[in-house]
Amino acid sequence: MSNILKRVVLIRPAIRPSASLKRACARPSFQRSTNRSFSVNFPSFGRFADAEEQIKIGADYMNKGSLDMAMNSFHKSVQAAPSGAGYFNIGVCYFQMDYAGKHKDAIKSFERSLEYTPNSADAHTNIASGYLMLKDTTNAIKHLEQASNFNPLDGEVQYNLACVYEAVGRLQDAKIRFERAGLMGIDRASTALEKLKKKL
């Protein structure tokens, strides 16, 4: 892998329980009975609470360095109630299993996460990281551009996109992204920009 690609920040960390689980169960259904009164049927909150609890347990295991136990908890979470947070954290676990070549599995998990949270810049960033590990710069660029679209003020995304653009020879695009990253407080962007200017 080139030195440029080695500079890319690779994964976003595991996230907290998703707010989407709470939104998914918030609508009661109303039924009209024959005596003109209304009854309310609330959906079961138990499985959503179980899923949230498993994500918290998994995050604790990750903080303690127990990757297998964390992965087990995140899988229990998505079995109880599939969520973007659950699949995102499974993807992070696969990334931590770098030695086992789990990048394809990580990508699949982050893609499942996007089914529940389609505008997640972090999921797109991590998918791009997986593709970079697989030396697929075309798909990496596609997902970094998506991450940039969803969170244009993220300097790390701008910096990473600039590095990949530079690696594939899109030097003008790289220059623009390094400049943006610098404006967003990424200190190493100015050094990278100075080196890039020598190539232009």
Rank of each mutant, 00 (worst) to 15 (best):
G130Q: 01
F74L: 03
K199A: 12
P152A: 05
G65K: 03
L114Q: 01
F48S: 11
D136E: 11
A85P: 02
P13S: 10
H75C: 09
E145Q: 08
S77T: 11
I55L: 07
V40L: 14
C25H: 14
Q31H: 14
S20V: 13
L153H: 14
Y131C: 00
S77L: 10
L67H: 05
C163W: 08
I55G: 02
K104N: 06
S148W: 11
N63I: 10
L161Q: 02
L171A: 11
L171S: 14
F178V: 00
S29A: 12
V40F: 12
P13I: 01
L10W: 09
K64P: 01
I186E: 02
A121E: 12
Q146A: 09
Q96F: 02
A14G: 09
N151L: 03
E194L: 14
G182D: 04
N119T: 15
L132T: 04
A106P: 00
M1D: 13
H143C: 00
F110H: 03
A123Y: 06
N89I: 01
G84W: 05
F150H: 11
H103S: 12
A24Y: 13
Q54G: 06
N41Y: 15
H143E: 08
D173L: 02
K22P: 03
F95Q: 12
Y131S: 00
D50H: 13
V40Q: 13
K6N: 08
F110K: 03
R188W: 06
M184I: 07
Y99S: 13
R23S: 14
A70I: 09
I11A: 12
H75R: 13
M184H: 10
I57M: 11
D105C: 02
S190E: 12
F38E: 11
L171R: 15
P17R: 12
N160Q: 04
A19K: 09
V9C: 09
A192Y: 02
V8Q: 00
K76D: 07
L21G: 04
L114K: 07
L196F: 03
V157Y: 06
I127G: 01
N126W: 11
I15T: 08
I107W: 07
N41S: 14
E156L: 04
Y94H: 13
A174H: 00
D50M: 14
E145F: 02
K175T: 08
I11F: 10
G58V: 03
N139C: 00
I15R: 05
G185F: 03
L200A: 11
E194P: 04
S83T: 09
E52M: 12
E52N: 07
S113D: 04
S29K: 13
I90C: 02
K135E: 15
R23L: 15
R36D: 08
F110E: 05
K64T: 08
K64W: 07
K76N: 07
D154N: 14
L114F: 02
L114I: 07
A100L: 10
N126Q: 10
L10T: 15
I4F: 08
R7M: 12
V164W: 03
N41W: 15
Y165D: 00
A85D: 14
K142S: 00
T34W: 09
T34R: 10
K104T: 08
G130H: 00
S44G: 11
I127D: 01
E53T: 15
A121R: 05
F48R: 15
Q146N: 08
A147F: 00
M97V: 05
P13D: 10
V92T: 03
M62S: 01
C163H: 05
D122I: 07
Q79P: 01
Y87L: 04
G91M: 04
A19V: 15
A162N: 05
A147G: 01
L161I: 04
L10K: 15
